[in-house]
Design a binder for these strands. Structure first.
Length: 395
DNA sequence: GACCCGTGGAC
DNA sequence: TGTCCAAGGGT
């Protein structure tokens, strides 16, 4: 069947076909149960660069803990980060928290237009369009990765530019059901017009699809060349005292910002070693570096220092190898994680914790830890447990 | 436009 | 095992 060249004359028929498909096949997702602006905003922020299956659990727990925009605005930042733990791109959590505070400060309440939504932290062009169309019925496009792929195939365009995508998406939006339309295109991209193995046989748009006719669907849009991901190595100071370890809160803004982690120091990477075995090249110096980290925190280490197995972790833009070293400190070290305070940063109204250090146990469930740090904590706990067992057996 | 920013699942 | 990449935003 030869496709019909897609002209504006065909838009009404195309819209009806996709909306009918959506009405029939749409997945039952938690954030589709109602059109509460706060809930839809939460879902859209969580869904940024994150799969639906991953988000569902976080979404339900989040709304249980922060059911309204004001409850989120009033929440402690540590609790917000804890609720986001494991979801990644942690700046989203702080931005969502900031957005809730911004909404609370608005006399008009929740922003009702895409332009106003765009002013909230963490809300860009896509998210503003999605919320405005879904919740408030604004006739505006929402171009995400799915929409980009669907349009690239529909027009057989190898390298669709943002401006071109915005124009195509805007002219196609269904005037009566803009929110359903935007979700329908995304849903099609996620379930039918997939990156690999698109199911053109079942696609309601196939009769208009130029890529299907040309046999180029799977090549549209053209793949971007993969970048080489650099490797980094970090010595971690696992400072142990009385069954607890010392964590430091990472500065907001950077990698894993706002989460708690073992104090670290980056060490030069061994050229050509990407297999994670390069830690041996550091040899005993890792312990010396770890001691330096601890001393920099005002701690005096004593007794035996033991290295834990290296932990490899892939971030989106960095392949990290962590070299954890367990250090012992004597009584009196509690003070490094107390006596801290809060201090204005002199710019905004936010308070910055002066000494973000704290002791935690192996089963701590209060602080938000990155996945790799959780692995190190677990390795420390297991090493410690096995040693205790060994001591027991000698008695 | 390029780069930074997490994680887990599919192949 | 390596590779891709998923309902992007900020700088």
């Amino acid at each position: 069947m030869k496709p019909i060249p897609l002209a504006p004359d065909h838009f009404p028929e195309l819209r009806s076909a996709l909306l009918a498909h959506y009405d029939r096949e749409a997945r039952d997702l938690p954030w589709r149960r109602d059109r509460d602006p706060y809930r839809v905003l939460v879902s859209e922020i969580m869904l940024q660069q994150t799969r639906v299956d991953t988000v569902v659990g976080y979404y339900d727990r989040w709304l249980e803990r922060f059911p309204t925009v004001s409850s989120l605005a009033d929440a402690d930042e540590g609790e917000v980060m804890k609720a986001w733990e494991g979801l990644g791109y942690y700046r989203r959590a702080r931005n969502l928290h900031g957005a809730a505070k911004a909404v609370r400060e608005r006399p008009q309440g929740f922003p009702r237009s895409s332009d106003e939504l765009r002013a909230l932290p963490g809300v860009g062009e896509y998210t503003a369009g999605a919320v405005a169309s879904i919740v408030f019925g604004e006739v505006t496009p929402a171009v995400d990765g799915n929409v980009r792929r669907v349009l690239a195939r529909l027009y057989d365009e190898p390298d669709p530019k943002p401006a071109w995508l915005r124009e195509r998406a805007a002219e196609l939006v269904d005037r009566g059901r803009p929110g359903d339309w935007n979700q329908a295109v995304m849903e099609l991209g996620a379930t039918v017009c997939t990156p690999q193995g698109p199911r053109c046989e079942t696609c309601p748009l196939s009769v208009w699809c130029a890529a299907r006719e040309a046999g180029t669907a799977e090549k549209r849009p053209a793949a971007r060349k993969a970048k080489v991901v650099p490797h980094g190595r970090f010595v971690l100071a696992v400072v142990e005292m009385g069954g607890q370890v010392l964590l430091q809160r990472r500065p907001a803004g950077g990698l894993l910002g706002g989460l708690w982690a073992f104090p670290e120091q980056r060490v030069p990477d061994e050229a050509g070693r990407r297999d994670g075995s390069g830690e041996e090249a550091v040899g005993g110096t890792a312990i010396g570096i770890a001691i330096g980290i601890a001393e920099g925190l005002g701690l005096r280490v004593e007794g035996e220092h033991v290295r834990l197995p290296a932990v490899s972790h892939r971030f989106s833009h960095l392949h990290a190898t962590y070299l954890p070293v367990v250090l012992r400190v004597g009584p009196g070290a509690e003070g490094v994680a107390s006596g801290g305070g809060w201090q204005a940063d002199g710019i905004g109204e936010e308070l910055e914790e002066v000494r973000p250090l704290r002791w935690i146990g192996p089963d701590d469930s209060e602080v938000a830890l990155p996945v790799a740090q959780r692995k190190v904590l677990q390795a420390w706990h297991e090493a410690r447990s096995s040693k205790e067992v060994a001591c027991e057996s000698r008695r």
